[in-house]
Design a binder for these strands. Structure first.
Length: 537
DNA sequence: AGAAACATGAGCAACTCA
DNA sequence: TGAGTTGCTCATGTTTCT
């Protein structure tokens, strides 16, 4: 199927859609298309002739309802073993060694354990071979590391911790907190959480040395929650070419906190902020609320925006508590309870004795989107909360992406995975960076509609290609896009955090979770883009 | 049927204090 | 230094409402 055909009905957006689509993905026999002996090598010819339809319209759609993918039989055939097997082979691991590992550890073993087992087996084999084979040449080592990032994890983190010691950070930066454990690799959350610097504190680091495998086109930028379960950021970093995450709290860019980790290979010097400067306190962001804000609520910043509003029952309860004391200040225990709830639910004072959750317009303002960005067009209020709550903080991301403006004065080709409501695109647009061709991959139809409306309203001159499901962004499609567009300048996205978030009490399964395991598709797609563009030179 | 409302802690790190 | 306390978190599953 041509990547430029018009979309059919959108795919399912329900909670179970991921596993269902994953099953379809396996059913289509995708791994067989890959050259398993040489991970991510591209054997087929890439057409450089643009599809004729590609030039007839500046907006294309891609349907995921390929008839070859809907075989009930192939769905039934799936065993628990197939899913990790397929994904690992997709990532470039040898089919045989994956099978051996699954046989040994069982079908229900976690992916990270499987990978560790495979790596351990390789190391063991390597050690055995060292007695009979000559040592690898430098270029052979580099090639090997490019294909299998796990194998050099220990060496890298050992080197890195040594380098950190030599650098001798300031006292504030030295006060770090371990967020990753296990083995001998350690990742830290900086305190303050300012990454390589924020507008008011940009001094931290002038330049950094990227691993060779990360120091090649395209630029990539990956985002997720900073406070993920132990080991998650170590895994993400190892897959993304051993690039150390940059942890930043958007509280330095906004009136609301948003602690996130970003793994990227962008330059870190000469960053600049979006204008106009965003309000940095609740009172500046919402001046009309000052009138009702009690002195005993000393908050000037909000916590991380949520995807669901507080219940009316809670705000009523708070009003009733306060009214019981007439106009007097309530006793300490009442104030304490109310402040707890205000912090937990990000409540603001909207009237006498009245608190309320932020409305979606206010959340958009805090996140740096234009007012009403997600409003209307069939979007329900609850789905709007979900959409904006899952998005980038635009000012933060734009600060990191600002270095691209001088590098791409004529605009960029962008592959945007897990686009959501278009935080990355809005950030680039607000930076004044032209969007030449954007491939936007987003499972949720509501979000795609919001993104498309924004694209049309802002009179973008480039082309928008929409795809629903990252699992169906096949190597073939990637190659076609690269053939038509001449490559991607940036691969950007933040994969689902639902299985990583501390708010999730039910299925906080880390990167093994149904949703958050989609990170591995970010890696798969990025790695394929790198391979194809690398071959093109 | 779909949207909205409601009830539901765990996990981790920062902080406090003896 | 270590035990105890405090605070925060891109949420999920079920029930109720429209």
């Amino acid at each position: 199927m041509s990547p430029f055909e018009v979309a059919g009905p959108s795919s399912s957006t329900g909670p179970n859609s991921t596993s269902k689509v994953a099953a379809q993905f396996i059913g289509m026999g995708f791994p067989k298309e890959m050259d398993q002996a040489k991970p991510y090598s591209v054997g087929r010819n890439v057409s450089t002739e643009p599809s004729s339809s590609a030039f007839e319209s500046n907006m294309y759609n891609i349907s995921d309802d390929d008839s070859s993918l809907t075989s009930e039989e192939s769905m039934d055939d799936l065993s628990g073993k197939d899913m990790p097997w397929t994904l690992l082979v997709e990532m470039g691991y040898d089919a045989q060694e994956v099978s051996i590992a699954i046989d040994k550890l069982g079908p229900d073993v976690e992916m990270t354990e499987l990978i560790d087992h495979i790596c351990a087996a390789r190391l063991e084999k390597e050690l055995q071979n060292q007695t009979t084979e000559p040592p690898l040449l430098d270029h052979e080592i580099t090639q090997n590391e490019n294909c299998f990032p796990f194998e050099k994890k220990r060496r890298h983190f050992e080197r890195h911790s040594e380098a950190r010691k030599r650098e001798g950070h300031s006292k504030a930066i030295e006060k770090k907190h371990i967020v990753d454990g296990g083995d001998d690799q350690v990742l830290h959350l900086p305190n303050p959480m300012i990454g390589y610097g924020v507008p008011d504190n940009p001094w931290r680091k002038l330049e950094r040395k990227l691993p060779d495998s990360a120091n090649a086109p395209p630029y990539f930028y990956y985002e997720n929650v900073a406070l993920a379960p132990k080991g998650v950021w170590g895994t993400i970093s190892r897959f993304l070419y051993d690039v150390e995450p940059e942890f930043v709290d958007s509280v330095y860019f906004s009136a609301a906190a948003r602690k996130r980790g970003y793994v990227h290979n962008l330059p870190i010097t000469n960053r600049f902020s979006l204008l106009p400067a965003p309000p940095l306190t609740i009172q500046d962001a919402f001046p009309l609320l000052r009138k009702w804000w009690p002195k005993w609520d000393e908050r000037t910043k909000l916590n991380c925006v949520l995807t669901k509003p507080a219940s009316a029952k809670l705000t009523e309860k708070i009003r009733t508590h306060l009214e019981a004391y007439g106009g007097d200040e309530p006793p300490l225990f009442v104030k304490k309870y109310i402040l707890e709830q205000c912090r937990k639910w990000n409540l603001v004072w909207v009237g006498k004795n009245r608190v309320a959750p932020l409305d979606p317009d206010e959340i958009e303002l805090l996140l740096g989107f234009p007012k009403g960005h997600s409003r209307g067009g069939g979007t329900s209020v609850s789905s709007r909360y979900t959409a904006v709550g899952n998005s980038f903080q635009v000012d933060t991301v734009a600060y990191h992406l600002s270095v691209l403006k001088r590098l791409f004065p004529n605009g960029m080709n962008v592959l945007s995975l897990f686009s959501g409501i278009g935080g990355a695109e809005v950030a680039l647009h607000r930076l004044g960076i032209g969007l030449k061709n954007v491939v936007s991959v987003e499972i949720c139809e509501v979000n795609r509609n919001i993104m498309r409306s924004w694209w049309e309203q802002t009179n973008q001159q480039g082309s928008l290609v929409e795809a629903a499901d990252v699992e169906q962004v096949t190597g073939e499609r990637i190659e076609q896009w690269i053939g038509v567009f001449g490559g991607f300048d940036l691969v950007i996205g933040g994969s689902p955090c639902s299985n990583l978030s501390g708010s999730n009490r039910v299925s906080r399964n880390g990167l093994e979770g149904d949703q958050s395991s989609l990170f591995f598709h970010y890696y798969r797609v990025l790695n394929h883009v790198k391979s194809v563009m690398g071959e093109q030179g």
